[in-house]
Amino acid sequence: MEKEKQVEILSNLIAIDSVNDKEAEVADYIASLFAPYKDREDVDIEQIPYTPGRDNLVITIGKGSKILGFSGHEDVVDTGDLSAWDSDPYTAEIRKGQLYGRGASDMKGGLAALVITMLDFLEADNIPGKIKLLATVGEETGEYGAAQLTKEGYADGLAGLVIAEPCDEMQEVGISAKGVIDYAVTALGKSVHSSTPEEGINAIDHLIDFANEVQSLTATFDEVDPVLGKLTHVQSMFNGGEQINSVPSKAVIQGNIRTIPAYPNQVVFYALDHLVEQLNQKPGYNLSIQYIFPEEAVAGDPDSSLVQLIKSVHAQMYPEPIKVVGNSGASDASEFLHAKGDFSIVQIGPGNDTEHQSNENISLDVFYKSVEFYKKLAEAFFIEKVEF
């Protein structure tokens, strides 16, 4: 595919405002690119609605029992302060070899590269094997598109999965990732006038007890992952009370825990639940805890055949050796790991560290080269025996 057409595809994706919504427009557009091939026996196009206006997309090309998975998410984060942008975030603009726009790096650039790779195989009528694209909704706010596709079996039976998340302009391959536990603890009390506090129950006082004790509790999860580091915990939001001269009857604290494979989410859930139960044994305490879209940590294998294959293909194309890393942020990998089958999941994409920022951008040279990388990787993937 000519470079001008590649830029057009990426620009059209950026033009769609899919901030945790309207992903169906992204799915419609990508599906339209494959429409000329829809009558082929080796092409399948399926849109899977999550909610109205929000469609996942699964496109399968090629034949065979061995399946290579490609994945990218269709949503983007909010633009933030528009005055901080030097151009319209939904109109791709090229300046000095960089293409600017919301989602350029995270991750419409990577998604476009995967789409172009598959279209090139179709145009050349030379598909090396069976390739399945899983394009998802809602990655930025909870990975619920990936969860839906996994639950419905679309990721079952893969032999490997490549997620095109931004990875230092294709210089890193992410093999593991921290999990996420967002929690909210609510304390209920009894409101009375502040002049007679002994007649009420102070919800904030009780929540402060939880806030202090949960810090000590999470500190006991002190094992260090060699790639991801330690489990981390941040108390990020606290609010409560009705007015300054009343004993507060309700208070809420929210926190964020980033887990590692040594501490599965259920282990952390049990510890937090137990703490709440202990506090509720005290007179007047009424605490409850809720978990919001928890995601499991992803444990990767640096010696897996897929990682070794990526290293081999990368060495043929890039002057510097690729770095094998862990990712502190969550991704759709945390949901796809629950699919049936024993396969590696890796992240490697053409984006950079401007993700989630104003003036988000992607290097066009890196973008073009990523397409060639994905092609060579797919071709090598389907060779029955590869020497590393």
Rank of each mutant, 00 (worst) to 15 (best):
V268C: 10
G349K: 01
N286T: 01
V7E: 13
E165M: 09
L231I: 11
V115Q: 13
H233M: 13
E46T: 14
G110L: 08
L337V: 15
E2N: 15
S328G: 15
L68A: 11
E2K: 13
A251Q: 08
Q357R: 09
D332I: 10
V19L: 00
I116W: 09
L13M: 14
G255D: 04
Y318C: 01
S236I: 03
G341K: 12
E46M: 08
T354H: 01
S32G: 07
A333W: 11
D301G: 11
K132M: 07
D88W: 07
E213H: 12
G97P: 14
G153Y: 04
V324Y: 11
G300D: 08
K250F: 01
K385N: 14
G240C: 12
I289V: 13
Q6V: 01
I59V: 15
I348P: 04
L134S: 06
Q98K: 15
S334E: 13
E355K: 02
L122A: 10
D342Y: 05
I204A: 05
K5H: 12
G255V: 05
R102I: 03
A187G: 07
S344N: 14
V346N: 03
N56R: 07
G284S: 05
Y37N: 10
Q254M: 14
A31H: 05
S176M: 12
E242T: 14
E25T: 00
K340P: 04
Q243V: 01
K108D: 04
R258W: 05
E74M: 15
Y29E: 02
E23D: 02
D81V: 08
C167D: 11
E384I: 00
S65F: 01
G341Y: 14
I181V: 15
P248T: 00
E172G: 01
F269P: 05
E387H: 14
V247M: 01
D120L: 05
D125S: 13
P319C: 03
K38C: 05
Y50W: 12
G326C: 10
I14G: 02
G341N: 12
E4T: 14
K250R: 14
A164D: 06
E296C: 02
Q243G: 05
D42N: 15
K311C: 07
G157S: 09
L99C: 09
A15P: 06
D44L: 10
S216P: 00
I163N: 08
T136K: 02
T150Y: 05
E139K: 03
M237N: 08
D182A: 09
G110C: 07
G229S: 13
E140R: 02
I9Y: 12
S246G: 03
I244M: 09
G53Y: 09
D205S: 10
V180K: 14
K108W: 04
V366A: 10
K38M: 09
Q243N: 03
